[in-house]
Nucleic acid binder design. Structure first.
Lengths: 121, 121
DNA sequence: CGCTTTATCAACTAGATGGTTGTAAACGTA
DNA sequence: TACGTTTACAACCATCTAGTTGATAAAGCG
């Protein structure tokens, strides 16, 4: 997978979670597969609307659909969720390590004004 | 913070990360604060465009802006990133625990066909 | 005081998104 | 066969988004 494709995958996955209905669907699916009508039940929108939300989640790779007669049960793909936490945690940790270095510098230098220039990395 | 406000905060934060330019800004800010022109430099869009991206990140609580003469350095807020990983991990872990229970059931029952009905939870 | 740099605000456009209704396909059952 | 259930697809609409250009404000510098 090249960088552009990975970008696109992240775009869609984050976008998919930027909607309370779709997050509700993910939350429900974490407890096991469900059909479209089951997933639509808690929300005040049509099953067609929910079907479109599921398509968004599917194109983001967050869920998959199987087949059981005329039903199409939806399953959560936890690996895709992990990709998101990996992206976030990468930069969160870089940020925190930078803070720890800054703290160490402050502790050793003991000069308050030295922190301002150190902030430039 | 009530549920609707928390929902709105999550909406904005996930939405903010659903764009490669804004993720690039977050990645850059993990290495330290930067000005708007510095942040705009790697991208092929105007500083006005980048300024709007920063407003999106700010309204999502992911970054803050301070003041240094006519410059307005942007800082990353790692705590907001943590809120996102917490949301994702919550349902990822529920999903994985369910899988572990299913595995245990399969191991004790030893019946291949039993798995299909067990899948319904 | 002008000039430059840095950044924001306002207005606009093309395109995407979230919802609807209507139609139709696939499947099990009477 | 006919019927009900479940789901998808197409067309449509209101709203939002991402980018642009142009004007403006704030601060430093000649």
């Amino acid at each position: 997978m090249d960088a552009a494709a990975a970008d696109d995958r992240l775009d869609r996955a984050f976008m998919a979670l930027a909607d309370p209905v779709r997050r509700g669907i993910v939350a429900r699916l974490s407890r096991g597969p469900a059909t479209v009508t089951e997933l639509a039940e808690p929300f005040d929108i049509t099953t067609q609307g929910v079907s479109k939300h599921i398509q968004v989640l599917e194109s983001a790779g967050l869920v998959t659909r199987s087949r059981d007669a005329q039903r199409r049960p939806v399953h959560l793909d936890a690996a895709a969720l992990e990709t998101l936490t990996e992206w976030i945690d990468r930069y969160r940790l870089i940020h925190e390590q930078r803070f720890r270095r800054l703290d160490a510098l402050l502790a050793s230098a003991d000069g308050g004004d030295a922190a301002a220039s150190a902030g430039q990395d």
